[in-house]
Structure formats: C-alpha cells, structure tokens
C-alpha cells in the first residue's frame, strides 16, 4: 500500500511539474491552444480537394444555441470568426460559410434534419456542434451516441467531410449538467467514423486554467463571450488546415 501511494505521488508530482513547465511556455500568448488539442489523425479529404482544385470552400455549421452569442451580431460568433480566420490564412480561397442553428434540439432531432439542411448547400465540410441539449436533458448516452453516429453517416453519404464539436466548458453549471458521458460518446463516434473531433470542452478548460479567461465569473459582459468565440474561431481554423493537410504552398 505504501509503495503504491508513493508511486501515485511520484506520478502526480511528475504530471504537475510537466503541466507547470508546459504552462510556463504557453503563458505569454493569449488563448494559445496546446498542439495536442489541435491534432487529429482523421483527414478531411473533401476539404483538401476543394482547396486544391476548386479554390472554393463551402462550410456549413450546424449547432445549438452555443454556436451563437445572444444579443451580439453573428459576426462575433465563432462561425464567422472561423470564416474570417480562414480567409486570412487562405487568401487565394473563397470561403463560404452558412450557419444552421437548431436551438433546443437533441442530436437525434438534429440528425433527422441533416439531409434537409445539407440539401442545396452542397458543403465540403459540415461542422456539427452538439451534445449540450442532450446533456441538459440527460438523454440516454447510448441513444445519443447512436444519433450522432447516424448523423455523421448521413453527412458523409451526402459527400461532405465532418468535424464534430463537443460542449462548452461551463464551470458554473458543472453541478447541474453531467457532461462526461456525452464527451466520451462523441469521442467514440469520432473514432469509429474516422472524423476529427474539435474538443471545445478541453480547449476552454485549458484557457480557464491558463488564466486566459476567467470562465467562472458570473457577470462577465458581452466582451468575454466575443473574445472566447474569436479564439474558438481561430483555433478551429488551425484545426481544419492541419487536418486537411493544407501545406504552406496552398495557403498563398
């Protein structure tokens, strides 16, 4: 028992010092995201192809309320920030972006709508932000996983690449919403269907721990929301460029 606890202590101490070292490097840049959170093995072939050949990239964001900021213009929410950031990084590419909000809809309800949403738009990439409504309504995680799986399959059959985006890190509602089962199940689907998962939860938690944003604070005004969404949009653009293996040559 004793030796075990020393081992644990050693591992914990190692982990803490590693985290401290990593933090020291990250500190100066605001809303920096550690590389491992923006790395994925799952490719985005349709995006890569569109950038290479067509020079036009059509993106569709499907999400619940947290894909927009209440009482702020859409230009401040992460989808628009993503578009701006992509245009910045890929000046030679036309980036079109549409947003379809599905407020208060569970993954299952949204999955049923996906065909209609994709129809006509012919996106190369669909970013599906989901999980929040399901977590709030305590949907059975197995059913949730099935619904996300079906939805991703629908989108893939429609000829689009898919990125899954999980929940926000929301410390103030932690005692009310049980998040882990939904995050775990989204990770499972991402693995099974070989689609990249944008881990919004871990990224925002990282920012909170690094001190970039104080997400605990109850009364932050609209500014905090705008900054977080801006950072999310930029992180997402890095994530997409990395997953699609868009080299520096194509970025010009």
């Amino acid at each position: 028992m004793k030796s075990v606890s020393w081992l644990r202590f050693g591992i914990a101490a190692l982990a803490v010092s590693l985290a401290a070292a990593a933090r020291a490097e990250d500190a100066p840049q605001t809303c920096e995201v550690p590389a491992y959170l923006l790395t994925t093995e799952s490719p985005l072939p349709k995006v890569a192809e569109a950038v290479k050949n067509g020079r036009t990239l059509n993106i569709l964001v499907v999400g619940s309320r947290s894909s927009a900021i209440l009482s702020a213009s859409d230009a401040n929410a992460y989808p628009a920030r993503l578009q701006a950031s992509l245009k910045d990084k890929l000046p030679a590419v036309t980036v079109n972006l549409a947003v379809e909000l599905q407020p208060k809809k569970t993954a299952e309800e949204t999955a049923g709508n996906l065909v209609k949403l994709v129809e006509g738009k012919r996106p190369n990439l669909v970013i599906w932000q989901t999980g929040t409504v399901d977590a709030m309504r305590s949907i059975d995680p197995d059913e949730f996983r099935q619904a996300v799986n079906d939805g991703v399959a629908t989108l893939q059959n429609a000829g689009a690449d898919v990125i899954l985006m999980n929940l926000q890190y929301s410390p103030r509602t932690e005692t009310l919403i049980s998040v882990p089962p939904y995050i775990d199940n989204m990770r499972v689907v991402a693995q099974q269907r070989d689609v990249p998962l944008f881990d919004r939860f871990a990224i925002m938690r990282q920012w909170n721990e690094q001190g970039d944003f104080d997400l605990f604070n109850p009364t932050h005004g609209i500014e905090l929301a705008k900054q977080v969404h801006d950072c999310l949009g930029r992180a997402l653009s890095k994530f997409i460029i990395d997953a699609a293996h868009i080299g520096p040559a194509q970025q010009n």
Binding site: I69, S170, I177, N217, H220
Partner: peptide
C-alpha cells in the same frame, strides 16, 4: 441546501457565453 445555492446562482448569473447552459435552471 442545493436548491438554495442554485437559486442564488440563477439569480446572479449573467454571462452571455452560457445562455444555453443556463437553460438548465
């Protein structure tokens, strides 16, 4: 006790970032 805490939090919490999550209240 939980109800007391949550009621307090609900009335004092105004963060536009978490409009959706606050629906749990």
């Amino acid at each position: 006790i939980f109800l007391a805490e949550i009621s307090y939090v609900a009335t004092s919490f105004e963060n536009p970032l978490y409009t959706e999550e606050m629906g749990i209240m």
